[in-house]
């Protein structure tokens, strides 16, 4: 390992990011046991490949990229993909229309997979558009588009909450 990068450093950095990893994994997988598997696999993979990380200030997006990848490996491995792909944007909309009193987190969970991940990375993790694009291996325009759709849905929820309050 490079100078200054040791087990204590890895342990401290991953400790700081642990809850963020949990929020991201559980929002993608919607299952705590799978989220824990994904986090453990991602941490092991990150540890083994630490030498390949060129800039250590990019550790967070790098780790989240590995974690996202691990989450999708689990989805593919356990044949969840069909169920998740079937949750279309339209399904999310109809869900919002019928369940007007959903909580904010339930609404995030009802978003289609791609929109949900972008929402968590942008609003919860405070990541930049360029970092999110790198984590998800998509263009910045795609991130902006997904974020805009997700923002619209969440804004509608907040408006409804204000209406009911």
């Amino acid at each position: 390992m490079r100078k200054g990068i040791d087990n204590a450093w890895f342990s401290r950095k991953t400790g700081e990011l642990a809850n963020g990893m949990y929020v991201l994994a559980v929002s993608i997988l919607k299952n705590e046991a799978d989220a824990e598997d994904a986090i453990q696999n991602a941490l092991l993979l990150a540890y083994r490949n630490l030498d390949k990380l060129r800039m250590f200030d990019k550790f967070k997006p790098w780790l989240f990229k590995i974690l996202t990848n691990e989450c999708y490996k689990i989805i593919n491995a356990r044949k969840y993909s069909d169920d998740i792909e079937n949750i279309s944007l339209e399904a999310g909309e109809s869900c919002l229309e019928t369940e007007t009193k959903m909580t904010l987190w339930e609404t995030i969970n009802s978003l289609p997979d791609d929109y949900r991940t972008v929402t968590v990375l942008f609003y919860y993790e405070d990541m930049k558009i360029t970092e999110i694009a790198s984590v998800l291996n998509v263009s910045e325009d795609t991130v902006k588009k997904r974020l805009s759709r997700a923002r619209e849905k969440l804004r509608r929820l907040l408006d409804e909450e204000d209406f009911y309050e």
Binding site: V26, L104, Y124
Partner: peptide, 10 residues
Amino acid sequence: LKSRIKSAAP
């Protein structure tokens, strides 16, 4: 949204 999502996150 940032503030609300952070406080509502599991």
